[in-house]
Design a binder for these strands. Structure first.
Lengths: 207, 207
DNA sequence: ACCTGAACACCGTTCAAGT
DNA sequence: ACCTGAACACCGTTCAAGT
């Protein structure tokens, strides 16, 4: 065998830890949490079953690292999307729509991110994902589109929570029998209309 | 060995299926989904490892039955609590508080109930739990405390979703760093104040 | 320091066999 | 019809041993 990717390639890898995380992300997406196994991951990455234990204390620690990647990916998506408009209300709406879409695109990853089992691993990344949301609420308050009476973290928390609940119920199929438009955009518009006003803006021209 | 409980007691049980579900509920609460195993369940119930397969197609089907029990229990709790007052707004508040409290008391069960994995088993029970909520929203609309313009199922869905999101974030510890009162009651009051008015009623005298 | 080989206890599921 | 016994492939984790 030739040396693998990273250069030094002593036994098998130069960067096994990174390969494990990437492989784990794919394996999780393929098989779900229940189908996820360290044996198969080791097989896929081409390494012995014991090798991952040099880099992660156990299965939970590895899945915690995957969940953390999830938060980083979500943060990046939210950042990109919310920068497409300067209107604070549209930014908040963007957050909700992207949040639901992210969960639809990565259901197994999303399912892991809020599991108490991995909290110690994901805590920091979760807080980092939450921070920009608070900023945008603060901006909306300063512009006068949200009441300044309530602390921004409290409003942000509620917007996050309701987006989260809508997402879970949507993934769970809870809206199918209700005969309601259940696109991410429609869910958010309808849910947040009491806060953000009833008429969503049409196609926003990028900056 | 003497005959067990139910009477006929041919080999071991009269009602193995019921024993399995009850044992599974306890095992789930003890060990969580990840720690839950059919081998240990069979051991606890005092039956061979193959026996459960006469009553459930597989592990998922058994956990689906447990999740269904969860919905039935939640429905009972909601019903009891919401009957303690006749005021529609207090009834809705009751729903939110009970919902969060149920999840705090049964975190592993709650975690299973909204997993897509068991949806086919839980679908009907979930809809049944959701129905009274729609009724109460309808009543609140007729009394004029909620706008009649929006269909009741849509409002109910949103209240459920936001309660669900608050619950998950709360269980996940997401409110600890924010320095906010995070009792179930405070979470619901703050979250729903825009819909249900700002001043929650004090102790309601029962019927 | 980083990885392999081999092993252990445990798990989901199956199936022939018992009553 | 309902259950047992025995088995299979698989999994999480450990540990002595290799380079």
């Amino acid at each position: 065998m030739e040396q693998t990717s990273a250069g030094r390639g002593r036994y098998h890898h130069g960067a096994l830890k990174e390969s494990l995380i990437e492989g784990a992300c794919r394996l999780l997406a393929d098989k779900g949490v229940t189908g996820f196994s360290l044996h198969e991951l080791a097989r896929r990455v081409g390494v012995s079953v014991a090798a991952p234990y040099r880099h992660f204390e156990n299965r939970d620690a590895l899945l915690g690292a995957v969940a953390t990647r999830g938060y980083e990916q979500l943060l990046r998506i939210l950042g990109e999307s919310m920068n497409e408009t300067a209107d604070p209300v549209d930014q908040l709406r963007c957050f909700g729509v992207c949040y639901i879409q992210f969960a639809i695109d990565n259901p197994e990853l999303f399912g892991i991110m809020f599991n108490d089992r991995y909290r110690s691993e994901t805590e920091a990344a979760q807080r980092a994902s939450f921070a920009p949301m608070i900023d945008f609420v603060g901006q909306a308050q300063r512009v006068g589109v949200l009441t300044p009476g309530v602390p921004a973290p409290e409003i942000a928390r509620f917007l996050w929570a309701s987006a989260h609940g809508l997402t879970v119920l949507h993934l769970n199929g809870g809206f199918k029998a209700l005969g309601i438009d259940d696109t991410p955009r429609a869910l958010i518009d309808s849910a947040w209309s009491a806060f953000l006003g009833d008429q969503p803006r049409e196609d926003v021209a990028p900056g």
